[in-house]
């Protein structure tokens, strides 16, 4: 054959390369590729898990934000209710207090009036006793007319004092 081409040697080369290719596939290419694929899958799985966790976290964050907004609204409503109740209670209490004060005042006035009257009665009684005592003394010391005059002037003075 020209160029020293030898079919037997070509076949030997082919056999040699086939053995090499098969051996390399079994020993290096396939195991390394499998390992790389496994790692790729693992990273993809991790990535997917992380994405899911992130989405879940975002969803939870949204839910919590919504809940916080709802709670704030509820708190604001409750505070407004409480303010309303407080003002109502304050007004009621003020009214009650004013009524109590009025009642107390009225009672004090009536008590004062009663005291005044009692004092007046006591004073009149004292005057009467003083007058009778003085009349007795005048009668005992002087005539009847002088006693009578003294009694009248004393009664007059007493009456003016009470009127003022």
């Amino acid at each position: 054959m020209p160029l020293n081409i030898d079919w037997q040697q070509i076949l030997l080369h082919l056999l040699n390369f086939t053995i090499l290719a098969f051996g390399l596939y079994l020993l290096l290419y396939n195991p390394i590729k499998k390992f790389m694929k496994k790692r790729e899958d693992e990273y993809r799985e991790r990535d997917e898990k992380t994405r899911n966790a992130l989405a879940e976290a975002e969803e939870k964050a949204g839910e919590y934000a919504r809940r916080i907004a709802e709670s704030e609204k509820e708190i604001a409503e409750k505070m407004a209710d409480a303010d309303r109740e407080l003002s109502l209670a304050r007004e009621t209490k003020l009214k009650e207090t004013a009524a109590e004060a009025d009642a107390l005042l009225a009672r004090a006035r009536s008590d004062a009036q009663a005291e005044k009257e009692k004092m007046l009665e006591e004073a009149n009684a004292q005057i009467e006793s003083v007058v009778s005592e003085m009349a007795e003394k005048v009668i005992l010391k002087g005539g009847e007319s002088a006693a009578y005059d003294a009694f009248l002037s004393a009664a007059k003075k007493n009456g003016e004092k009470h009127e003022s």
């Binding site: 030898d6 080369h13 040699n16 390369f17 053995i19 051996g23 020993l27 290096l28």
Partner: peptide, 29 residues
């Protein structure tokens, strides 16, 4: 059989590469 030196080189290359691959497969992979 009388062969070209290139074929002997091919056998040596195949043997060397396969031995290396086997060592890598057993100890490194």
């Amino acid at each position: 059989t009388e062969v070209n030196p290139g074929l002997v080189s091919a056998f040596i290359v195949t043997a060397a590469v396969l031995v290396f691959a086997a060592i890598v497969r057993i100890f490194a992979v």
